[in-house]
Design a binder for these strands. Sequence first.
DNA 1: TCCTATCTGTGAATTATTTCACAGATAGGA
DNA 2: TCCTATCTGTGAAATAATTCACAGATAGGA
Lengths: 230, 230
Amino acid sequence: MGKNIPVPAIERLSKIYTVVSGLKKSDKKRISSAELESLTGIQAHSIRKDLSLLSPVKSGKEGYSTDSLEELVSATFGFNRKRRICVAGLDMLGMAILNNPDSALSGFEIAAGFDNSINRMEMITTKVPLYHFYEIEETVRRLEIEFAILAVDAEGAQKTADRLLAGGIRGILNFSPVILEPKLNLLVRNIYLLEELRLLSALLAQDPVPLTRGQTGAASPDKGNSEQYK
Amino acid sequence: MGKNIPVPAIERLSKIYTVVSGLKKSDKKRISSAELESLTGIQAHSIRKDLSLLSPVKSGKEGYSTDSLEELVSATFGFNRKRRICVAGLDMLGMAILNNPDSALSGFEIAAGFDNSINRMEMITTKVPLYHFYEIEETVRRLEIEFAILAVDAEGAQKTADRLLAGGIRGILNFSPVILEPKLNLLVRNIYLLEELRLLSALLAQDPVPLTRGQTGAASPDKGNSEQYK
DNA sequence: TCCTATCTGTGAATTATTTCACAGATAGGA
DNA sequence: TCCTATCTGTGAAATAATTCACAGATAGGA
């Protein structure tokens, strides 16, 4: 149960977990680090090294057991516990996210949607309960919502984030084009379309085109326990 | 004009660019590395170091000129040239992206939308020209589209990516929950909601909660000149 | 049971990135 | 013009992450 797993390793392990849990359907019992490399693009070296940071030791001639590998990562990172999340901002992007089928978000449950337009909310049909922005703090606290997907416009972003935090939210996936103020006890990952496009441009301008890392949209170094951009 | 700018530095510089170009409206002529730190969360150290990788040398008692800073990053990474992009897959997520106002994507122009449902496309009103998936290759080539935003479901993702690549696309922002096959000459950045949520969980499970980096949604190390996840 | 081929686990070496600390440059005031 | 306060630019040091290479473990066959 290693403390201090480097962030890049966490990112790789999450990806490995995704691949392995997707694999289980296909009754594959064991998988080698080399197979994982071809499925994930992560080098076998790194896969073994990363797993050795968690692993309670075992070895063999066959690869990893998919079951125990999934269990190991899951237990280390808390993927086994279902977490409640919410979506704040229900314009097109927010609605697209709200409409994800449960199966697409396995391990997470969208427990609430928030918007500032009563009219808009009345037109929406969804099984997710909807609330006005002014109910954010109370609702997040009452439903024990841990993460928020912030899909509001630039103007409202910081204020909405503050309300979420006041309700006790632990992490925000920020789709709004704003750099949120770093706060202690709040993880932020930014997913900013324009920034991602620029990153593609910038990477392309490098010669040779670099291999890159980390990150789905990633984040950047930050003070105050939060994470910005990627 | 430094070759070999490390990827993390590229990510930070892109972010700095975003902040600085946003600042220009407010008639701010000069900005210090310390001010940039408070705006971006990137340490002043790193900002100066990163800029020194590009800078043709200059110094002074005042901070950076916002104009020349913007120009420097812009020129280094090719942000000054307008690039054409497309959106493949026009369900809710794709439509949300297609409907971004031009101003939200400054430097990029959505030159085409693609979908496999003629019915769906006929119901859409947008000023972006729409085409069927089977026109992808020809259209991407004819319009010289450089980047694609892939917002199709898991089933169609790889096939659609192949068509885009056949048309000569240089980079893909992949919103579909699939790890695309690494290809030479194709940059991929994955923005995978479930993966991002898991990353939040995993980061939270670390004690102490780590500061993180890179990336808006970021990507991970890869063979074959492409970038996966983040 | 023993041997071999295979694949993991991991310390050590290498490489990359970040942080530091201070020399150098400049604007502005005296 | 000279002095001072301020802020950049950047080698060097420190830290972090990746890659390597091989010892150790095991399954399966002879």
